[in-house]
């Protein structure tokens, strides 16, 4: 029997994560079966498997979760999502954790936020992304040394006309900027 005195006693952190993900409330049904952790192509590199992360979220261990590398190893392959017997949108929850970690500067030991910023920076200037610019800018700013290793590959792409020096710019850049600005003002999604 559901009464009006029924309260959700799950951790505040649980509510925070769930409310930032459309359909995220299904996380309440996690059976801790581990089909996510077993499916993940990067599961063995993760500090905590997604399942463990969900148990930690339930336990309210906010700091540890946001500092974990788990979500940064998520490649959005969606195996966990389609296999989850409780239909939890796991990949989307990983995005939510990435957002929270970036927002609070908790994303350590990973270059993923920098890559993401570089990428979206291009979108906001051109409306389209720009592979060569992206790669070179990202590497110069973040991994100047590892660029040397990639030179042969870059040359391979270049000689086949696959590295472009300039991105295309969309015509209605103002419109896109206005949409992005407004979306940022409203904030959140669900």
């Amino acid at each position: 029997m559901v009464t009006d005195t029924h309260q959700d006693h799950r951790s505040d952190f649980f509510q925070e994560v769930v409310s930032d993900t459309p359909g995220g409330e299904q996380l309440a049904h996690c059976l801790q079966c581990g089909s996510c952790g077993g499916s993940c192509p990067n599961g063995s590199d993760m500090q905590y498997t997604p399942r463990t992360i969900f148990a930690m979220i339930n336990a309210g261990r906010r700091e540890e979760v946001l500092a974990a590398n788990t979500m940064w190893y998520c490649v959005s392959c969606y195996f966990c999502t389609t296999r989850c017997p409780q239909q939890i949108p796991i990949t989307d929850l990983m995005y939510a954790l990435k957002r929270l970690a970036i927002a609070e500067g908790k994303a350590k030991d990973t270059d993923a936020p920098a890559l993401a910023r570089t990428f979206t920076g291009f979108v906001e200037n051109f409306g389209r992304s720009f592979e060569f610019g992206l790669a070179s800018r990202y590497y110069l700013l973040n991994k100047p040394l590892s660029m040397f290793k990639l030179v042969p590959m870059g040359m391979g792409l270049f000689t086949r006309g696959r590295l472009h020096l300039l991105p295309n710019r969309i015509r209605q850049m103002d419109q896109l900027r206005a949409i992005i600005k407004k979306a940022r003002e409203i904030g959140g999604a669900s």
Partner: peptide, 25 residues
């Protein structure tokens, strides 16, 4: 005509509403 970048996976890591709005355009 005048399509814009879908943001790949990168916008979703930053701001979900910006991600969906950019795509929805």
């Amino acid at each position: 005509d005048d399509w814009n970048c879908c943001g790949a996976t990168e916008y979703f890591s930053q701001d979900e509403l910006v991600a969906t709005s950019v795509i929805a355009r």
